[in-house]
């Protein structure tokens, strides 16, 4: 059973006919172009100075590369701070969440206890709570804890998202009970069963969970906007949005920042592509 986790099935179920294949490729080419074109366009914008940006007809590929936008980004803004903050906070949340979610998932998947049904259905219902509706009370709670403008303000509330528990639970449920019984009979405590058996056997689930948790934090905007006022403590999304609030918008600077902001997640994507694309992401929804 555990051997199936993370494996992909055969891609093509029925041999498609030539017209179907032709239409499919046309559609996919179009989609690929639409997906990638904006990235290429801001790449070209980011190496233009402001004047040539507004020239018409436009210079698609600038003859002379202009690095001023990037220089300005690193010298005059806190871009490096924002990047560090984003990665640091994202990683902290990912690690903490992985541990506590896996523990809870094991409990819900394989242990018997009174109140299990109530707890798991409460957690499941919480998925439907729009987080945006909680920012005002959360703002005051975090303020009263004295955590506004700290990393903790971003890390701690993120640990309350229950979605990952259900993803991991679906991985643990698919492990045979006998394996766990066997370990218990072999003298293992519940903690040893958890760390030596469950965690290694759901490793692909853990990576999927980690990837999604990190991505969710990386894309987060509203809560950091509310909870962090100090410019150097901002995350990338909020930091870059603040570039636009100047009276005269420096589009070159924004294009450079937007483009660079895609780099960390792109590196992660290339490294862990298999898990981003994993079919198991659907189980996150189905719980």
């Amino acid at each position: 059973m555990w051997k199936l986790i993370g494996k992909q099935r055969n891609v093509v179920s029925l041999r498609p006919t030539p017209p179907v294949i032709t239409v499919s490729y046309s559609v996919l080419f179009l989609a690929a172009i639409v997906s990638i074109l904006p990235f290429l366009y801001i790449l070209s914008t980011s190496v233009k100075d402001t004047q040539s940006l507004f020239s018409y007809p436009p210079e698609w590929i600038p003859e002379q590369l202009f690095w001023g936008n990037y220089v300005k980004l690193f010298q005059e803004t806190s871009f490096l701070n924002w990047t560090f903050n984003t990665i640091f906070i994202g990683l902290s949340i990912t690690i903490l969440k992985l541990i506590i979610d896996a523990m809870a998932a094991y409990s819900l998947a394989k242990l018997q206890f009174i109140g299990k049904h109530i707890i798991s259905s409460t957690l499941l219902m919480a998925v439907a709570i729009p987080v945006a509706a909680l920012i005002i009370p959360l703002f005051f709670i975090v303020r009263d804890m004295g955590l506004l403008n700290t990393y903790w303000a971003l890390i701690l509330p993120a640990l309350a998202n229950p979605l990952g528990i259900f993803l991991l639970r679906s991985f643990i449920v698919s492990l045979p009970d006998e394996l766990i019984h066997s370990a218990r009979l072999d003298g293992a405590s519940e903690w040893r069963v958890f760390t030596q058996l469950i965690l290694p056997l759901i490793s692909s689930g853990l990576v999927v969970h980690a990837v999604f948790t990190f991505m969710l934090q990386y894309t987060n905007f509203l809560w950091p906007l509310v909870a962090i006022q100090t410019e150097t403590r901002q995350v990338l999304t909020v930091g870059i949005s603040s570039l636009k609030s100047n009276f005269v918008v420096d589009w070159g600077l924004i294009s450079a920042a937007s483009l660079l902001a895609t780099i960390p997640i792109t590196i992660l994507f290339i490294a862990l592509q298999r898990f981003f694309l994993a079919q198991s992401l659907s189980s996150a929804l189905k719980g």
């Binding site: 555990w2 051997k3 045979p176 006998e178 394996l179 019984h181 066997s182 370990a183 218990r184 009979l185 072999d186 003298g187 293992a188 405590s189 058996l197 290694p200 056997l201």
Partner: peptide
């Protein structure tokens, strides 16, 4: 179970695959 000192062989063998 861990304090009972009984050994069990399961139908599916329940070997630790990793």
């Amino acid at each position: 179970p861990r304090y009972r000192n009984v050994a069990m062989v399961f139908q599916s063998y329940a070997l630790y695959p990793h």
